[in-house]
């Protein structure tokens, strides 16, 4: 960049089962001026934790190739900042995450882990196979699930695997308030996406929000009470952290501005094709003016998504061409050497 200043690198702390895949897509496809690079998962979506990944990060953080990278993402704890930042003193990092109601999140994680054998995701190495019909507690004891995983991941501890206590919760709260550039809320995904765009300079918000929804699992009243009780019992710190994060989310200054509400209405209109909601409270014009404004912004979102998609295809095509040229060059070299050998 001109003047030597670099754009900050976005670090997406992807807490499992928080609709983070949507945000990950958004960050990966949208980050202007840079590639998005996955960092090995420390917390495994399919269960357990990967001690090797953490060890690797610990020992070889400097070897992560951040050249041209605009964003990194993965199921790693915020604590990796203590590894990344010293390893890359010339870079600025901005951290974002999504939090979800901890009972819903952990139940979602539980069902996902229990059915992991039906999909491609692999649990951490060394875990014994879960018995069929394992209980929530059983999955915790077996090391597939962690209690209070949101608190753990946001505490700032690079190895947040011990007991969760009040001090860890306070550190997580402080990070939510002071360290994170954005803490989105899964249940309020649209608002979170708008904030992500406004704070982080993303280009497009129109992403597929239907990704990775496990439609088959029990929800709401279908969830057996004992299961819900267990999820609550094992996530007390997360419940407090989530309540705190909601307060912070409701208090973001962007809500005072008209732009936030217009973008939110445009996102819903652009994605669902529905008419705009009622005008925002601070909008002083009439409904016609509001609808025209929202319509233009929705159209802008659609065009931005088209631009992002075009750029993504171009990048993929360029990469394919590069591979093809490289392959042709290698073949040519081989043939010429073979020819020299045969005729020589």
């Amino acid at each position: 960049m001109a003047g030597g200043a670099r754009d900050p690198i976005l670090c997406f702390i992807h807490v499992p089962r928080t609709a983070g895949t949507v945000v990950r897509s958004l960050v990966r496809d949208n980050r202007p001026g840079g590639l998005a690079r996955p960092i090995p998962n420390v917390f495994k979506g399919a269960g357990g934790r990967d001690a090797d990944a953490l060890m690797e990060l610990h020992d070889r953080a400097r070897e992560i190739d951040l050249d041209g990278v605009g964003a990194v993402h993965g199921h790693y704890p915020l604590g990796i900042r203590s590894l990344l930042e010293p390893a890359f003193p010339d870079h600025d990092f901005r951290y974002l995450t999504m939090l979800r109601d901890p009972v819903d999140r952990s139940l979602s994680h539980f069902f996902y882990v229990r059915e992991a054998r039906h999909h491609d995701a692999q649990p951490a190495e060394g875990l014994r196979p879960l018995p069929a019909g394992v209980s929530f507690e059983g999955a915790i004891v077996a090391g597939y699930l962690h209690d209070n995983v949101e608190t753990r991941m946001l505490s700032g501890d690079p190895e947040p695997f011990g007991e969760v206590d009040d001090a860890m919760l306070e550190r997580a709260k402080r990070n939510v308030r002071d360290t994170m550039a954005l803490v989105g809320i899964t249940e309020r995904l649209d608002e979170s996406l708008v904030l992500a765009k406004q704070r982080l300079g993303l280009r497009s918000l129109l992403v597929d929000i239907s990704q990775r929804v496990n439609a088959a699992r029990p929800r709401g009243p279908q969830v057996p009470p004992h299961l819900r009780d267990a999820a609550e019992r094992y996530n007390r710190y997360d419940a407090e952290l989530y309540r705190f994060a909601l307060e912070q989310f409701d208090a973001v200054p962007e809500r005072q501005g008209l732009d936030f509400h217009v973008e939110l209405a445009a996102l819903r209109t652009g994605r669902d094709g529905a008419g705009a909601d009622a005008p925002a409270p601070m909008f002083e014009g009439n409904e016609h003016e509001w609808h025209l404004l929202v319509r233009h912004r929705a159209e802008l979102l659609r065009l931005e998504a088209k631009q992002v998609e075009r750029d993504r295809r171009r990048t993929a095509a360029d990469a394919a061409n590069s591979r093809s040229r490289l392959s042709a060059a290698v073949d040519s070299l081989r043939r010429s050497r073979l020819g020299q050998w045969v005729h020589g």
Binding site: L258, D259, V262, F283, E284, G285, E289, W290, L293
Partner: peptide
């Protein structure tokens, strides 16, 4: 009616 900010937006 919506004011200058909304017009510019």
């Amino acid at each position: 009616e919506a004011g200058q900010e909304a017009w510019e937006m």
